[in-house]
Design a protein around this nucleic acid. Sequence first.
RNA 1: CGGGGCGUAGCUCAGCCUGGUAGAGCACACGGUUCGGGACCGUGUGGUCGGAGGUUCAAAUCCUCUCGCCCCGACCA
Length: 570
Amino acid sequence: MRWTRYFLFTLRDNPSDAEVISHQLLARAGMIDKLAAGIYTYLPLGWRSVEKTARIVREEMGAAGSVELMMPCVQPAELWQESGRWQQYGKELLRIKDRHDREFCFGPTHEEVITDAVRRRITSYRQLPANLFQIQTKFRDEIRPRFGLMRGREFIMKDAYSFHASAESLDATYRAMEAAYRRIFDRCRLSYTAVEADTGNIGGSESHEFMVLASTGEDAVAACECGYGANVEKATTGALAPPPPWPGTPPAKPEEVHTPGATSVADVAAFLRLDPAHFIKTMIVESDAEFAVALVRGDDEVNEVKLKNALGAAHLQLASEAKVEQVSGGAMGFSGPVGLKGVRVVADPEVMRMAVAATGANRADYHLVGVAPGRDFTADLVADIRVARAGDPCPRCGKPLVVKRGIEVGHIFKLGTKYSKAMACNYLDENGGMQPMIMGCYGLGVGRTVAAAVEQNHDDAGIVWPRPLAPFEVELIALNPDVPAVRDAAEKLYAELSEAGVEVFYDDRDERPGVKFNDADLIGFPVRVVVGKKGVEQGQAELSLRRDRVKIPTPLGDAVAKARELLAGL
RNA sequence: CGGGGCGUAGCUCAGCCUGGUAGAGCACACGGUUCGGGACCGUGUGGUCGGAGGUUCAAAUCCUCUCGCCCCGACCA
């Protein structure tokens, strides 16, 4: 492809709204173009990378036994009402009406549609399992889209769904999908890790996320050298070290102490000369159905996802100040579990292991010391609801966990029968009994994978594409296209490279060398072939890798072979 | 949805406080000199100052409303 015949416009300045590096570079390299918040045009160069990623995904999904189909992006409300998610999904679901005032939504995901397609066809265990996938543009009306392709509202994603007659069959497919994902991200040359994950609103039992490690990642993952890895939303830990010894003798019974204005654990701890770990932190939350009280040790934080799961709630939020006073009978910042009535109390196991503790007195400007969990209050539910921290013991081997940031590029779930039951997606088993199919679902963000590749592969000058995702593999630069010998040599090389099946992008513009070099660095094709006046006089071209930019003088006649050799080494 | 900020040329921004002929750099067009790491000189094109209403002799500038965008938070297969 010749630049002068292509549709490529690089930007000298970063767009003012681009915050993360992948957004900046993809925009500057003329690959994406924002149309509205979280909505992007994939310009020709960007689309090639997306297509290359999609091709890898297609090949590996097919090899793993999944069959491609395509489902609509606009879906009727009826299906969503049937699964219950029309109510449950909230504002993230973009709802639209047609000219007849019938309700539809723009699909954020396709469980309903695929389940409907399968239930109307598969009736027997003999026809199972089934595994179908699609690559489709989806829409989620995110509260706050950001980071370019990493968190758009409209985005391209591959999703696969599998249907089974047994848990064993689901597990076999789940493992096959997990292996396929590893091959996909390996082929994309990404550094990633698979971690245990929470299943979120989509429901289900087992779940893994594939995380590309990058400092700009929106998720935190806890990992251990033993191989344990989990999203911090999900990560568990071994038992923590107990709090330091109580200074002096703790009171035998709860005693009120005056703590004027000290509402945070840190303030009260400093005021009373205790360690934060001596405290019980009390958070009052509000779910769709109830108020609840969450207790964690003072040096811990409440993990909202774990708490939500423990309470069995769909949504959760911190209670307002007025509600806190209503529930606790005291001021915000002075809440504690002693004497609370009429609310469910969820305590972290670390709280119940404390021999003696300090906590709020449910009275403005007072705290209690000498509180013994189990004696002075009880919990309705004891569950792990704390956020795992770096340094906590690994739940498997006890070594300290490390916490890293990651970009979630894939997420696989064992869904179970949530959708098949709700939507009567049944089959007849060998005894003629009707059973709901057991389902799995497997998502992979295609656009996000491209963005993650840029996050992981760039330098100060621009993108350094991994070969499999590069829009073109070789950039050919004619430095002085107005010099006939140079132009002829470049044209010849262009023809030969094309003939040899090399994906070559030919910068034939009438620009100064600096402009061409800088654009080449910005766009980041893996191999560069430069033809200049001095080189041509000596019958030489100059090859280099974007990765290291080390110049390799090469006779013009060997340039094609050398380019292919360099590519083969990538 | 709460808090904060920004909408002026294709892009990045100044001008606004203190109202008085719409600016710069880059990009683009033409001419010339240049040509291995974002050249230089000259000439030129390009703007309903996001939109609507108001105040005023006069509004990019002040006021009101509205739309869009961004940041922090809450939220999130």
